[in-house]
Write a protein that binds this DNA or RNA. Structure first.
Lengths: 208, 208
DNA sequence: GTCTATAGGTGGATAGAC
DNA sequence: GTCTATCCACCTATAGAC
């Protein structure tokens, strides 16, 4: 009875396997055959669902990174105070990173890949809205007198969002430092670090 | 009269070109021919100076990333207060990133590449010392009563070091956000952001 | 130390059967 | 929609002349 089958198990399997491999090895370091093997599908089949490797990569980005800023922005209750709203954004950031562990790596790879030349229009537009939203929250807090006025809102927004991302990216190093043990048997507590980021950020921002 | 010619202009040119290309396109995305062309040397000559592409990559990491933590640690005056020492580390971080613009990208690529499995012994050992040093500074400030005691020193060290790195990596996005202009005609002011990081971090840390 | 030539392998992508 | 077979471009690495 479905009018058009818009989703496909095979397509989803390809996307999931590609996201994992692109995150771990990068776009250039991942082969079509790798993706086919990881997805359990014939490599040639990938070209039935996607134009080429580059289009598959773009689809992965659109699927994961594209939605990321919106998920953070959605976490904000319009009636919340700036303090509460910032905490909500950071907690949501942690939730998303826990649910999609490859996301932080995809984000930094994309930033590193499209550094100088052309920042992807996709990620550029979304990230811009996210940063603008967080900047707006900080500015509102300054207007209401609860945040100190001698911090530049754009800079503070970067400081706010950078910490969790960096923590998740550098988790192998953190494991060595925190547990004295590089093996992943004891996973990092992302939610606990998120609470640290909240108190650290609000501590830096609040007027005294 | 030199006993052994330990340096070589050609070798240095290869290393410099490789560092630039590895940072911009990643290891897998960079070919030996690219490096040869950028360095102005015959591609086959690269195999005279380095065993293979992987060894060249390791040499680039050792040259740039390996020295990075030491350069930050060296910036600390033993007689400085924890506040002064933290500020010195962050300022040095900015200086190094300005002098070696490809360094932030190399660092995040290396982190992303060796995520789960084997963190490079090289970068692992050095990064560990850097993080341990910064953690020690924060702990000393807490002991002296100038830093609040309800922050976890390891977490605070991550927060401290992550901000500038993230800023330099995401500078294309920052340009869009700050200047409303993705073109690199107006470069980012890394030193100004470093001063923000210092006041943000010390604001978060100081006891009240 | 530097170059030419090339071997040997792999990856992206397509044609076409089923 | 899925699979087999394969083409072609390109890349790493080496052999060997100079």
């Amino acid at each position: 009875m479905e009018p058009v089958e818009t989703t496909s198990q095979t397509r989803d399997a390809i996307l999931a396997a590609a996201a994992e491999l692109f995150a771990v090895r990068g776009q250039a370091g991942t082969t079509i055959k790798d993706i086919g093997r990881a997805a359990g599908v014939n490599p040639a089949l990938i070209y039935y669902y996607f134009d080429d490797k580059s289009a598959l990569y773009d689809a992965v980005l659109a699927e994961l990174i594209g939605r990321f800023p919106d998920r953070l922005i959605e976490s904000i209750d319009p009636s919340a105070t700036p303090r509460e709203a910032l905490a909500a954004v950071i907690r949501r950031q942690a939730q998303v990173f826990i649910a999609e562990p490859q996301l932080p790596r995809l984000i930094v790879r994309e930033l590193a890949d499209h550094f100088g030349d052309r920042a992807t229009p996709l990620i550029g537009e979304h990230a811009r809205r996210l940063l603008a939203t967080v900047t707006g929250l900080i500015r509102r807090g300054q207007d209401e007198g609860i945040f100190r006025r001698d911090v530049e809102p754009h800079h503070a927004a970067i400081s706010c969002l950078s910490q969790l991302n960096w923590y998740c990216i550098s988790s192998p190093l953190m494991r060595i430092l925190l547990h004295n043990d590089p093996s992943p048997d004891k996973p990092l507590d992302v939610e606990r670090f998120a609470e640290h980021v909240i108190s650290f950020t609000l501590g830096a921002l609040e007027a005294r």
